[in-house]
Nucleic acid binder design. Structure first.
Lengths: 198, 198
DNA sequence: TAGCCAAGTCAACACCTGTTGACCTACGGT
DNA sequence: ACCGTAGGTCAACAGGTGTTGACTTGGCTA
C-alpha cells in the first residue's frame, strides 16, 4: 500500500504542474487539480499540507546547465539558447514557475534564486576560465559582473519565453528553432562575454 | 453634480491601475479598488459594468512611439530603449497590462495588439524608408519581416521590464538608465535593422 | 484470524468573490 | 417651493475558495 501513496503523489504533482502552467497560481484551484488527478481535494492537503507547499513542490526546477567553460567562446550563446529552449519545452515546470512568479511573491523569489544560484555561478566559471583576466584575484568585481551578465541573459531568455509560450505573440511563436537561435544567440553571447558597448 | 461623476470615474481608474499593476488581474479585487478610491464597490459596477470592462478601461495604452525613420540608423536602438523605459516609468498602465496578460487572455490579446498595431507599423516605416530596398513593391516579405522584428524587440523589451519591474531581479533592478541603454541599445538595433546573423 | 494503520471519502466550515436591486440624498431647472 | 433624477449607500445573493475533521476501507503484520 506504500506504492499507492507514491503513485498518488506523482499524479497530483503532474496535474498541479499542468494547472499551474496553464492558469497561474491563483486561477489554478486545488479542486481543479484534484479533479484532473481523479482524487479527492482533501488528498492534496494530506500529501502537501497547503496550496503554497504544493506549488513549491510542483515548481522545483533545475536548469541543468552544461559546463559553459568547455565551449568555444563564439558558440556559447547559441549553445545556451538551445539549452534554454530544450529545458523549456520538455517540461511544464518552467512555464508554471513563470506564470506564477508574476503574481506570487514566493514564486518570484524562486525565480530570482534560479538565476542567482544556477546561472550566475556558471557564468562566473566562464569568466574565471578566461585566459588573461584570471590572474587578478578581485573576486568582488568579477562576481558582480557575472551577476549582471546573468541578469541580462535572464531578460532575454525570460522575455523570449514570455512572448512565445505565454503571450503567444504570433511572429515570435512562428519562429523555427534555427531562426530563434540565430537571432538570440549573438545577443546572449554579447551579454555573456561582451563589454557594455558590444 | 455632473463634475462629481467625472472625478469619481477618474479616482476609480487611478485606483484600478495601481491595484492591477501591483496584484495582477485576479488578486486585484473590486472591493480593494473601491476601498482605495474611498467609494462603494457598487459604484465601480455603475461606472464600468463589470471587472473585465474596468480592466479594459484601466489598461488602455498608447506607446506614443516617435517617428523612427527620422533617426540615424545607429541611434534607433538606444532611442527606442530610452523611450520604452520612459513609457514604462511614467505610468503604471504597462505594468498592470503585463501582470494581467500572463493570466488573463483578454489582457494578453491586448498586449499582442499593442506590438502588432503600434510597433509593427513603426518598424515597417523604418525599412521602407531605407534607401536601396524601397524600390521593390514586395509588401508581403517586407511586412512579415517587420512583424518578426517587432516580435524580437518585444522579447527583449518585455523581458527587461519583467525582470526589472515585476520580478525585481537584483542585478537588473540595480542597472542605471545609462547602463541599461548601453546593454539593450545594440540588441534592439540589431533586431530592428540587422540581418539574422548579426 | 484479529487488529492496526495508512489510504481514501465525505460533508461541512468560514471566508471571500463579483454582482444585483432596493433604497436614500441632494442639487438644478421649473 | 417642488420634484425628477443623477450620484451614492446598503445589505444581500449565489457561487467558489482553501482547509478541516470525522468517518470508512482494505492490505499487512502479529
Amino acid at each position: 500500500m506504500k506504492r499507492s501513496a507514491d503513485r498518488t503523489r506523482g499524479v497530483i504533482l503532474a496535474a498541479a504542474r499542468e494547472r499551474f502552467a496553464a492558469d497561474g497560481y491563483e486561477r489554478a484551484t486545488i479542486r481543479a487539480i484534484a479533479a484532473d488527478a481523479a482524487i479527492d481535494p482533501a488528498m492534496v492537503m494530506r500529501y502537501f499540507g497547503n496550496k503554497e507547499k504544493l506549488f513549491a513542490a510542483a515548481a522545483e526546477f533545475d536548469l541543468r546547465l552544461p559546463d559553459l567553460s568547455r565551449l568555444p567562446r563564439e558558440e556559447v550563446g547559441a549553445a545556451l539558447t538551445n539549452h534554454f529552449l530544450d529545458r523549456w519545452e520538455d517540461d511544464e515546470s518552467l512555464k508554471a514557475l513563470l506564470r506564477a512568479s508574476v503574481t506570487n511573491e514566493a514564486a518570484a523569489a524562486r525565480m530570482r534564486q534560479l538565476f542567482a544560484d544556477q546561472l550566475g555561478p556558471a557564468i562566473m566559471s566562464l569568466s574565471t576560465a578566461r585566459p588573461g583576466t584570471a590572474a587578478s584575484g578581485d573576486h568582488a568585481v568579477s562576481s558582480a559582473s557575472a551577476a549582471t551578465r546573468a541578469g541580462l541573459v535572464a531578460t532575454q531568455a525570460l522575455g523570449f519565453a514570455l512572448c512565445r509560450y505565454v503571450l503567444a505573440l504570433p511572429p515570435v511563436a512562428a519562429l523555427t528553432r534555427e531562426e530563434a537561435v540565430a537571432w538570440l544567440g549573438p545577443t546572449i553571447t554579447r551579454y555573456l562575454t561582451g563589454d557594455v558597448s558590444g
